[in-house]
């Protein structure tokens, strides 16, 4: 049957489809974290932001009937959590890694607490754009049903790359990240720059969460994020704080997540637990290969606590 099976081709197609479907949360969280880390602060709490964003997006979409309002609500929630992180970190002698872990816990707890009544109802989902109209093959069409958020994420990556390089804001963020003294000497408040960078980072991470609950997998439940937020934070280091590399790395992670089920569907069945761990093993392997004890990482903001 022509429309039924395309055999082994489903594997690359599923990986492509998976890369598009699964990568979006990774992409948003990693781009957000990229901004935050470039300003010299690490926010490990984005897992909590992601889950909180997913919950609030679902709730608002359900209550108002508009998924886009849900996305906005997720962004706002995310930036509030970002502001909380930045606010606590701006106190003297407070460790940003610890605050991140605390907010991860707080965000997840709050999302589960407030999200209880949202597990059952079905909220309106985000629409998809059909980019596969040219193809007769349903699998291709399915893989190319793309959500606008993915496209926005893909667009943000080069814009961010360009903004870091050429705009005044990009320069300020980088200066705060490279040397807070220099930023202060230029007459800027480092804390304010980091506050804004963390809020923008939280905004993006929250939107990443809205993708999870409003598009794919597309509903709210407590197992929704299996560590995507925290993986995305690792991904930033892996991507050398470069927004364009964040994009490629997110796509690779999304594809890796789709690989296990896709291989099973064509008969490769052994060791799926190890396949499930593939993204983590991959990250660790690449970090081992590319890191060096002799020098700090290229591209690493000098003020960042984890690279010192």
């Amino acid at each position: 049957m022509a429309d039924a099976s395309i055999g082994l081709w489903t594997v690359p197609l599923a990986v492509l489809g998976g890369a598009i479907r699964v990568s979006t949360p990774f992409l948003f969280v990693s781009l957000g974290e990229c901004i935050t880390e470039r300003s010299g602060r690490i926010n490990l709490g984005l897992e909590g932001t992601l889950v909180m964003g997913a919950m609030s997006a679902y709730g608002i979409s359900y209550l108002t009937g508009s998924p886009w309002l849900g996305v906005l609500a997720a962004g706002v929630t995310g930036s509030l959590l970002g502001a909380l992180h930045a606010g606590i970190c701006s106190l003297p002698r407070v460790n940003d890694i610890a605050v991140g872990i605390a907010l991860m816990l707080f965000g997840i707890g709050l999302a589960f607490f407030l999200g209880k009544p949202l597990i059952e109802p079905t909220a309106p989902r985000l629409p998809a754009i059909d980019f596969g109209w040219w193809s007769d093959i349903p699998q291709v069409r399915a893989a190319l049903r793309i959500n606008v958020l993915f496209l926005i994420g893909v667009a943000i990556a080069p814009i961010l790359y360009w903004a870091f390089k050429t705009t005044r804001w990009g320069l300020l963020i980088r200066t705060a990240g490279e040397s807070s003294d220099a930023a202060r000497a230029m007459g800027h408040s480092v804390l304010l720059i980091r506050l804004r960078a963390t809020m923008v980072g939280g905004f993006l991470a929250g939107i990443g969460g809205s993708f999870l609950s409003l598009f794919y997998p597309g509903s709210w439940n407590e197992g929704l994020s299996s560590g995507q937020g925290i993986t995305a934070v690792a991904l930033v280091i892996f991507a050398r704080w470069d927004p364009l590399l964040c994009l490629w790395a997110s796509l690779a992670f999304g594809g890796a997540a789709a690989l296990g089920p896709a291989l099973q569907s064509v008969g490769v069945t052994s060791g799926y637990h190890l396949f499930n761990a593939a993204p983590y093993i991959l990250t660790l392997a690449i970090m081992i290969i590319t890191c060096s004890p002799k020098r700090t990482l290229t591209g690493a903001p000098a003020e960042l606590s984890i690279t010192r």
Binding site: I88, V94, A102, L103, L105, G107, I108, G109, L110, F113
Partner: peptide
Amino acid sequence: LPDASVLVLQGIIFVFVLASDA
């Protein structure tokens, strides 16, 4: 109360204790 109350409380305690470092 939902089971997640414990998580929320832990999160709040964590945040307060860290902020108190200042």
